[in-house]
Design a protein around this nucleic acid. Structure first.
Length: 104
DNA sequence: CTCGTGACGGTAT
DNA sequence: TATACCGCCACGA
């Protein structure tokens, strides 16, 4: 067996997120077999370089919002990327729950 | 080897 | 219904 690192598994799951959809850290963690350890997902993505080809922008927190602090460069970047993919943001910067539903 | 922090989630108050 | 706190694993110093 491959005994792939959990990080690799996370990246694989994130890569499966279709364009125009998003997933929560908990969802990714569960699909990656990590159970409910969403923090690890965040850590993995934090270690992720921008040119790795991973759609990290499609991963958000359970509140349906971007986990970055507002006014942050990363926050604006992620929001711009999601909007460019057709993701609609609520007035509270929340994403429609329908976008969480994605299947491979 | 030990301590503290972190792109979070769930439960309790 | 909203806010606060704790717990989990991994990694850096």
């Amino acid at each position: 067996m491959v005994r792939q690192s959990n990080y690799q598994k996370i990246y694989d799951v994130v890569r499966q997120i279709p364009r125009g959809k998003v997933a929560t850290y908990g969802q990714v963690a569960q699909l990656a077999g990590l159970g409910g350890h969403a923090r690890m997902v965040g850590y993995a993505l934090h270690n992720l370089p921008e040119n790795s080809g991973i759609p990290w922008q499609r991963v958000i927190n359970a509140k349906g919002q971007i986990s970055f602090p507002p006014d942050s460069a990363h926050w604006n970047l992620q929001r711009a990327l999601l909007e460019a993919e057709g993701i609609r943001f609520d007035e509270d910067d929340k994403i429609s729950l329908a976008c969480y539903r994605w299947e491979v």
